[in-house]
Write a protein that binds this DNA or RNA. Structure first.
Lengths: 352, 352
DNA sequence: GTTAGCACTCAAATGGCGCGAGTGCTAACG
DNA sequence: CGTTAGCACTCGCGCCATTTGAGTGCTAAC
């Protein structure tokens, strides 16, 4: 493509998208000509719209209706046209306040984040719990609890802690446990959790003599537990406010799909190191989302990418706003979590 | 009330409720007379229906429509008329299989229970995580993890274990922690968790000298963590299948309310020792549920009532089926959890 | 006490009608 | 030559009158 569209076409297209995002109704030439930012007669606009339709940026539901932006138009809008909306002072303040007030549990912070995301955007929000795949092991201790169970306490280099209750073979003694944990420590310290599961575990399984099986099982239990991904979904009901879901059948299939949780894998799919991903309509792998757009952003704790979150809305979502909110939210969540996991010490992330 | 209704009226009422539960459409005299179990002419039935209307068991949406059961009718139906449906072999089998296959985590078992409940009933299900309020403390240990944090490991008399990460004052040493935990053990062992929070904590706070504040904070952290109630909700989207929610606005307000979570408190409200509660329509405290019925049942682990679960559906829900499923599910969940918490030893509950 | 018959009611479905928003084309204008 | 006014044409949508049919209540006969 050379210069995609001349300035006037751009302006018209922007106006159409803006309007459609707001009203969900096909927009016509007259409506546009009334706008302040477009000083053209309806007829001229009609000509331009005709061109835009031919180029695939607009669609007509039927002959005598206005035009509706195509997915191609949204794509262009997102990458070239829209001016990213700013959060209002109030919103920014609100987010900061609510995020730092819940400093007790990681889970709570994630939930609150999801709530705020959908509260501000009025769409459906999805927030992943931070995973620890890339965290490096620092220390493992095994504490006997009852006959047949022990607690594994795992500390990672970032300072994060996790504990899992393990079932251990009945006969095992405290001395045994200590031996095993010291073994684990010498062999595993410094490695990533994800490596433990994929590569180190098989190796170790061969090497350890006596308690081979128990050690292996324990490790598997630990890394399973620490690798499991949980996702908070909030605001699904919001979708019912939009005319695209005024059909109950559509609403139902969307909500069911959400509940099944397959959708979440799509959000979860972290595209390498990409900061933010915008998937419009059929760009989503899941056919259930073909009328939705999904914007996701990853967040980092102490520089390490540990999870992502996203907003799901109709294709005519307010992209500018959502992008702004997500960006802000991701940064702030990162800060708060970093602070939490490091025990309030202010290193790593700069918490202004 | 003497004998509430004569046999024929009962039969007719049952037939109407049965039919309405199935079709959600007002049922007329002709429809009824065609049924095999009622051998009367439409005219006779009309007379009876007229009586039933006067008695408050039936309602007419408008003059020329059939009759619809009133809440009073459902009440009667539930307590006197319905024959509790049995689960099919397949369903029972299915439940047992899926429940015992997920023996790893309590949370998973609860989730699976909720999923099956709504899967079988096609309504919305709500399952509470088991609480430990009534569990008696057996042992507490505090394990230092990093500078500034320690893990509290709590074992209860039933063998259940729980661990919480606590933040401790920076200066504290391992020796300190040991002292504190032994103090906790001597003073608290044998008490119920719920008592710790409400009555023991203030007492203790005065008594301990030196580390008063830290101890108190820790205990508060522990008991907060162990008392928190979590609830799984599954199948909300199912409601959209029923004509009573074909109005999107209604659907939306129901779903929003569910998401807000206030509804859950209602389910949670354990009516003392009552096994099963059925709330029909406006019997629900929450006005949002005035067109719903909620059936809840508590479940027990080792004889102790530790949580409850329920099904939310339209007032014309299939009461017989739901009651049967809930009863079965509650028993089986109890068994599975008992087995899990006791570490597979088969005492307490009899696991056939 | 039960039932057939009949007049009456009323929601919902049906179908025509006109409105109005919007298009596309053509011809005139600067 | 780009822009605009004018006009005929399209077509979904809401409105209204009509029909349909399920259902009732009453009365009179069995």
């Amino acid at each position: 493509m050379t210069q995609l569209l001349d300035v006037r076409k751009m302006n018209i297209l922007r106006a159409i998208v803006d309007d459609y995002i707001l009203t969900a109704a096909p927009v016509g030439s007259r409506t546009l000509s009334k706008r302040d930012d477009i000083e053209l007669s309806p007829a001229t606009i009609r000509n331009e719209m005709s061109d835009l339709t031919e180029l695939g940026f607009l669609e007509q539901p039927h002959t005598s209706a206005g035009r509706v932006p195509s997915e191609k138009a949204y794509r262009l809008y997102v990458s070239n046209i829209m001016d990213r909306a700013q959060l209002t002072e109030d919103e920014a303040e609100y987010i900061k306040a609510h995020l730092s007030q819940r400093v007790s549990e990681v889970g709570d912070v994630i939930k609150e984040t999801a709530r705020m995301l959908s509260g501000i955007t009025k769409y459906t929000s999805v927030v992943q719990m931070p995973h620890m795949k890339n965290a490096r092991l620092k220390h493992i201790s095994l504490v006997p609890v009852t006959e047949g169970s022990a607690l594994a306490i795992v500390v990672t280099n970032s300072g994060a802690t996790n504990s899992t209750l393990l079932t251990v073979p009945k006969g095992i003694t405290t001395a045994h446990l200590e031996k095993i944990s010291s073994l684990m420590n010498t062999r595993l310290s410094g490695y990533k959790l994800v490596d433990v599961q994929t590569t180190l575990l098989p190796l170790l399984r061969e090497e350890v003599g006596e308690q081979a099986e128990s050690v292996a099982e324990m490790l598997e239990g630990i890394s399973n537990d620490m690798t499991r991904q949980n996702v908070e979904v909030v605001g699904a009901a919001n979708m019912l406010d939009y005319p695209e879901y005024s059909d109950v059948a559509k609403a139902k299939s969307f909500l069911s799909e959400l509940e099944k949780g397959e959708v979440l894998k799509e959000v979860l799919s972290d595209d390498g190191d990409v900061e933010m991903t915008i998937r419009i309509g059929k760009e989503n792998d899941n056919p259930e989302l073909k009328d939705c757009s999904v914007i996701t952003v990853s967040y980092r704790v102490c520089g390490e990418q540990v999870g992502s979150m996203g907003v799901i809305g109709p294709t005519r979502m307010d992209y500018g706003k959502v992008v702004a909110v997500l960006k802000f939210m991701s940064e702030n969540l990162g800060k708060v979590l970093s602070r939490m996991l490091l025990g309030d010490g202010s290193d790593g992330a700069n918490n202004k």
